[in-house]
Each structure stands twice: as structure tokens, then as C-alpha cells.
Amino acid sequence: MLRLFLLLRSSLGALDPFFRYLVPVLALGLLNGCSTLNYYGQLASGQLQLLQARKPVTELLADPSTAPTLRQHLRQAEQARAFASAQLKLPDNRSYQVYADIGRPFVVWNVFATPEFSLEPQTHCFPIAGCVAYRGYYRQGAARGAAALQKQQGLDVYVGGVEAYSTLGWFDDPILNTMLRWGDERLATVIFHELAHQRLYVADDTSFNESFATFVEQEGSRQWRVARGLAAQTEDDSQQRDQFVGLVLASRERLKTLYAAPLSDAGKRAAKQAEFERLRQEYRKLRDSQWGGKGRYDAWINAPMNNAKLLPFGLYDQWVPAFEVLFAQAGRDWEVFYARVEVLGQLSPEERLQALQSIAGKAAPSQ
């Protein structure tokens, strides 16, 4: 373990200030056991791989050997990046002005876990990001291994691939090959989402951070389409997403009620599976009656279900309606909006929760 620490110190110390901070943290892992050290070690090596793979977008666009498809994506990303800073008032830095091909479909795999009869996530605390509701791994095998160990402890576990993440301004975050899989529209939304994390991040409040970034992503994407003279996203696509999320969140609420009920574990276990089947049936009914039988979420709904699989919905969507109201109240002015969100971020967790509940309870003014 000491040899690994010395190698990390020599190879990372000359790079970003983040690594000069991370090395002492890795050293603490020596006192806390190999599992902690191994985890922080894979974080360091994974981030180092990203740094070493980065190339400036301008160089790639000027290079005649750059593949035409990649060139097209990078041109679109360059325009979206400029729009993000100029119009959405997101950070103006070198993030997403560099590109890295890391040779895999996801940059990290997040592992979510909950108790069998609870929707409260197992949280993990880190020196920079604070406490979050998941643990990320740069190798899928490592994520699956960690998930297997948690399953042995009786937890509900879900592993989800992530196409991008923000280092909160510590690095010049790259456009990744993982971000190109769903086309230029999705690429722009990911850039908006991740830059929103750089614009504002509150330690230890995953649902606040992700809901804020999701709102910036969605509103930014609407404005981005208008700026390019494109039609708004089809109402069908938006409506289907909202309806699907609504089904999942309603199922979460019923599960919360179930887990608080005075039932035996066996009773809760049976009712839990019945709730998951109810969610599947409601989805299929909605799909067949309103979506013409075409389901964008069939694969997700038909796969095995547990509490942890529902976590990202509550984390990423819970407070989006509150931010929609706040944006309207700010006169749709981004700087005013960010200032008001910063005020929320400075509240205590209890005060912030009460404020968000109050804001979300107000009807959003028509736009």
C-alpha cells in the first residue's frame, strides 16, 4: 500500500491542485484499510486517464484526420458551449472545450443502495463533493463487485452507467466519447447540466443539486432550440417523460407509506413486489392507451425492480417544479435566478427543504 501511495504522489503531484489534495486523502486510506485506499486509488487513476486523454477541440477541428462524424459533433458542441456561457450565464472556462475518447460506453458506473424497506439512500462522503447518494466506479466490473457485496448485506442495489460528470471546476472537464452516443441534442443538454454543477453546488444535498442542474438543462435546451430556429421539443416526447416520471414518483410515495406501516417483514416484502407490479401495469396501460403502444421505457420497466432503482428519479427530478417557479419569479433572467438559488443554497438543510416545498406548492406563472 505504501508503494502505491508513493507512486501516486510522484505521478500526480505535478498535475492539478486537486491531486495535491487527493494524495493526503489517499494516505489516510492507509489508516482506514485497503478497501478505502483501493476506492480512492481508482478515483485517482480514472481521473488521470481522463486528463491524459484530453485534446483541445480547436486542434481536432483543424486536424484533417479527424473523423467527419466526430468533427460534426465537436462543432455542435462548440456552439452549445458558447451558448451556455453567453446566454445561460454558465461558467466561461475551458471545460467542454477539450475532448477525450476513453474507449468505453460510460465514464463511470454509479452504485445506489437502500435498505430493503426504505427509500433512503446509503450516502457516501467525499472531501470535495460532500455526501452523495451513490458511489462511482471507473470500471463496470468494480461497480458490480461493490454492488454484490452490498446485496450480501441485504441492501437493495442498482448500478447505472453515467455518460458525464462535473469536477465542479477543479479540472477542465472534457467532452467525452460517452456523451456523443445520443446525438448533438443530448450532447448540448449534458454540457448545460454539468456546467450548472460548476455554477452552483451545495455540499451534502444531492436532490437539490441534481434538480437544479436538471432544470438548467431542460430550460437551457428549450432556449438553445429557439436560438437555432428549431421547433420546440415535441410535446409527445416531453409529455411521455413527465408522465413516466410521475408514475415512478407516485410509486415511491406509496412505497414510503408501505414501509412506515405496522406490517411484518414478510408482509412488507410481498406488498413491495405487488407495488412494483402495479407500476409496470400502470406504465403499460399508459403506453397502450396514450402513446400508441410505443414505449421508450420498456426495457427499464421490464428489468428487475427494487428501491435503489427508483432513487435517481427522486434525486434528479424532485425539485425541478420549484426551480421552474423560481425562474419565472426571476423574470426568466438567469443571473437573477442564480442569485435566488444561491440564497437557497446558503440555508440550513431544514430551511432549504421548507423553502423548496413552499415554492413548489405555488402554481408556476404562465410563460
Rank of each mutant, 00 (worst) to 15 (best):
G169W: 10
L48P: 02
D172N: 11
Y39M: 08
K151D: 01
A86G: 04
K309W: 02
G141Q: 15
H73F: 14
T123M: 03
A231Q: 11
R296T: 13
D317H: 09
G169Y: 06
T167H: 11
Q273D: 15
V111R: 06
F313G: 07
R228C: 02
W182F: 09
V157T: 09
G154Q: 13
C34G: 11
G293A: 14
D204W: 03
G314T: 07
D288T: 11
Q354L: 15
L187V: 07
Y201P: 01
F327A: 04
R225S: 10
I102V: 15
L263D: 00
Q52D: 11
A308T: 09
P105S: 14
L31P: 06
L2F: 11
Q97G: 08
R278V: 11
S118W: 06
L6P: 09
N32T: 13
G267T: 05
E194W: 10
A231L: 14
L168M: 11
L315G: 03
M1D: 09
V216Y: 04
P312I: 04
W182P: 01
L74Y: 10
A339W: 01
K362N: 09
L353A: 07
V336N: 14
G293Y: 07
E277F: 06
G145F: 05
S251K: 09
A266W: 08
D333A: 12
A62Y: 12
A129E: 03
E277R: 14
L51S: 10
F327G: 03
E163F: 04
K268P: 00
N307K: 04
C34W: 15
V226T: 12
Y99K: 08
V162M: 10
V111L: 12
Q354A: 15
L230C: 10
L347G: 02
S10N: 15
L22K: 06
G141T: 14
R199I: 07
N306Q: 05
A53Q: 11
S264T: 15
Q72D: 13
G33M: 03
L4M: 06
V245W: 08
Y21I: 03
W109T: 06
Y259K: 08
R139S: 07
P349Q: 00
Q52G: 05
L353I: 03
F19Y: 15
L344T: 01
L12I: 00
